[in-house]
């Protein structure tokens, strides 16, 4: 049972990790990074580490996502709409 849950979560994390590198929009990439952190939280619970899971959910997924999102705003990379053509390097 836990193996199946772990399998689903691990596949989700790996897909999100590849998506971080492949997605063109930086907002989506930061969201995918938070997805990796939340999957890590579930795995920590399965590995009998609930305190680490709490910290990872609050700090690793929450605060880290906020920091990266604010950085995107300051760097001018915060573009929601899909840009047609060209690379996103500002």
């Amino acid at each position: 049972m836990t193996a199946w849950v772990a399998l689903v979560v691990v596949v989700l994390m790996l897909v999100a990790a590849v998506a971080v590198l492949r997605l063109r929009s930086f907002v989506a990439a930061v969201a995918a990074t938070s997805v990796v952190g939340l999957g890590l939280t579930v795995l920590f619970v399965l590995l009998q580490a609930p305190d680490v899971a709490m910290t990872e959910a609050a700090v690793g997924a929450g605060l880290s996502g906020v920091i990266l999102a604010l950085a995107l705003r300051r760097l001018g990379l915060w573009r929601i709409e899909e840009t047609r053509g060209g690379r996103e390097d500002a």
């Binding site: 790996l14 971080v20 590198l21 590995l47």
Partner: peptide, 27 residues
């Protein structure tokens, strides 16, 4: 979990080397 951990490390290291953008390198 071991496969997941190794996969995440490999994907992250490859991404750090292969990307051309500093923000994506941080991610």
């Amino acid at each position: 979990a071991l496969i997941g951990a190794l996969g995440l490390i490999v994907i992250g290291a490859l991404g750090m080397v292969a990307t051309n953008h500093l923000m994506r390198m941080l991610l």
